[in-house]
């Protein structure tokens, strides 16, 4: 009896970890797409997540747009925000130094946070689960339908991601730019355009992450920094630039965090993922899945 209790607890934590980890995985993929295109870590990545969630809340609760329509509309709005960010703040910079670009993305993140606060205020916003919040029971642990949505959407995005980067012209040219920008330019690929696409896709994935997690965590304007940082943790652990690594690392990070929160202390839950980020950054900056030779070539 006691044993089965322990097992169902463990299972419960794992479910929770996968749920959160999926979000980190999505945020990490967003980081990687822009990193591969520009060599810069986009500090505004977390704000895309917040914007996605908050816009979705407004559309469904205030404008009563059907969930499916609102999902695509919110994602589209944030993608446009991503494109605007690239066109007005990244693209115009001549002689872009990495330090300057990083500070620019920090500035955009502060700006987006400020805008979000002016529009939505400091309240947390509740949103209905996509398909009810009656949990299923599996081996004594419960799992919310929303968690299944999150996992399902992650799987779909990864599927489209692989399809896009391996089988479409735009995707292939973006990969070419990531590998060698000069060579890509020589064969006629517009590398500036590739950067714009990367912001659009990255913002879109961020927005989706925000939309699907909002029913569970409730969204407010200030969540961007921590979500972004944990997503970055997943990106580093998975090997910067390696998106499949990021997905695996995101879920691992989420599970460890949930186990830590469950068995050690929930107050320090957020610190656990960050501690893992620091440890990996220090001991194996190439990530658990990257080769150390490759990482030496990667600056940001």
């Amino acid at each position: 009896m006691n044993h089965s209790n322990q097992f169902s607890d463990l299972l419960q934590f794992v479910f929770m970890g996968i749920q959160r980890g999926s979000i980190y995985a999505l945020v990490a993929m967003g980081f990687n797409i822009i990193y591969n295109a520009t060599g810069v870590i986009n500090f505004a990545q977390g704000e895309f997540v917040v914007l996605g969630g908050l816009i979705m809340v407004s559309m469904t609760t205030m404008l009563h747009v059907p969930i499916v329509v609102a999902f695509f509309l919110s994602t589209l709005v944030v993608m446009i925000a991503g494109v605007i960010m690239e066109r007005f703040t990244i693209n115009p910079v001549k002689e872009p130094g990495i330090l300057r670009l990083i500070i620019i993305t920090i500035a955009v993140s502060i700006l987006l946070k400020g805008i979000a606060m002016c529009i939505w205020g400091k309240d947390s916003y509740h949103m209905d689960h996509f398909s009810g919040d009656t949990p299923f029971e599996i081996f004594g642990a419960t799992i919310l339908p929303q968690t299944l949505w999150i996992i399902g959407i992650l799987v779909i995005i990864v599927f489209f991601f692989i399809l896009f980067f391996n089988h479409t012209m735009i995707g292939k040219s973006m990969r070419a730019c990531a590998i060698n920008r000069d060579a890509a330019r020589l064969v006629g690929i517009n590398d500036r355009l590739a950067v714009m696409y990367s912001f659009a896709i990255s913002a879109g994935i961020g927005a989706i992450a925000g939309i699907i997690i909002t029913p569970i965590i409730q969204m407010d304007y200030g969540r961007g920094a921590l979500l972004g940082l944990k997503g970055f943790g997943a990106a580093v652990v998975g090997g910067l630039g390696n998106s499949i690594g990021a997905v695996v690392a995101g879920i691992i990070l989420g599970v460890i965090e949930a186990l830590g929160a469950g068995y050690i202390s929930s107050h320090y839950m957020d610190a656990i993922a960050l501690l893992i980020l620091l440890i990996v950054l220090f001991l194996r900056p190439s990530g658990i899945m990257g080769s150390s030779e490759a990482s030496r070539l990667k600056d940001f």
Binding site: G233, D270, A271, L274, L275, L277, R296, F300
Partner: peptide, 16 residues
Amino acid sequence: LKGHYLAMATLGFGSI
């Protein structure tokens, strides 16, 4: 390490 690892490391440290 070369690059801007410090930015992220300090961000994590600051949050902790």
